[in-house]
């Protein structure tokens, strides 16, 4: 291992630490649930592979849509600021209802969106959009990723079937510790 390489890695890690430090640190001190969830949502972008047609152009931003509270959205914007996913800049967009949903790569649906969940999912049918929600039982209802609280920790429940239908590939790393669920009622 060449020393230059080692030094550059060191500098890089320092830089990364410097860049990330303010937000993460602030969040870490009083790590709210939203903060954790925002980080998790962002993290999904790294553990899920989108099909080639998900991006029209190589420079098209990676869009994370939020349906729910503005606070979370703000939190999420905070997390993704300056980050990139496979050379795609990150863009957080808020949608107020299902009809307002425009094409996005991840869509977070908070607990307030429980009522219109089926509509939203139907809206996304045929699109390669990873759906994430912290709504209880959401995964059984067809949401691909669900945050579930257990032992004061946030665990993942993953509906692999839905993700496969959407053409998304989920990393086995993500799958191993997660709880795999299936859509409970299939119409």
């Amino acid at each position: 291992m060449a020393p230059v390489n080692r030094i550059s890695r060191f500098l890089l890690s320092c830089l990364l630490a410097g860049l990330l430090a303010p937000g993460i640190h602030a969040a870490g001190v009083a790590a709210t649930e939203n903060q954790v969830k925002a980080v998790f949502v962002y993290n999904f972008s790294h553990f899920v592979d989108w099909p080639a047609g998900a991006f029209a152009t190589p420079t098209e931003p990676f869009v994370i849509g939020v349906i729910g509270s503005d606070a979370f959205a703000a939190q999420l914007e905070e997390v993704v600021r300056g980050e990139r996913v496979n050379n795609h800049t990150l863009l957080v967009q808020r949608f107020h209802d299902a009809d307002a949903i425009r094409p996005c790569h991840i869509l977070f649906i908070d607990q307030s969106g429980g009522a219109q969940l089926e509509r939203i999912l139907a809206q996304l049918k045929g699109r390669s959009t990873l759906t994430v929600s912290d709504l209880d039982g959401a995964s059984q209802r067809g949401v691909m990723m669900q945050f579930a609280r257990a032992d004061n920790r946030i665990r993942l429940r993953i509906n692999v079937e839905s993700a496969r239908e959407a053409g998304l590939t989920i990393s086995s790393n993500l799958l191993r510790p997660a709880e795999i669920v299936r859509t409970s009622s299939r119409e």
């Binding site: 954790v36 998790f40 993290n43 553990f47 790393n173 993500l174 191993r176 510790p177």
Partner: peptide, 18 residues
């Protein structure tokens, strides 16, 4: 390390231990 990314990313110490 590659296997422990998810554990770290999603703060799962148990999984990390595994």
């Amino acid at each position: 390390a590659s296997n422990s990314t998810a554990a770290l990313a999603f703060e799962n110490p148990d999984d990390a231990a595994v």
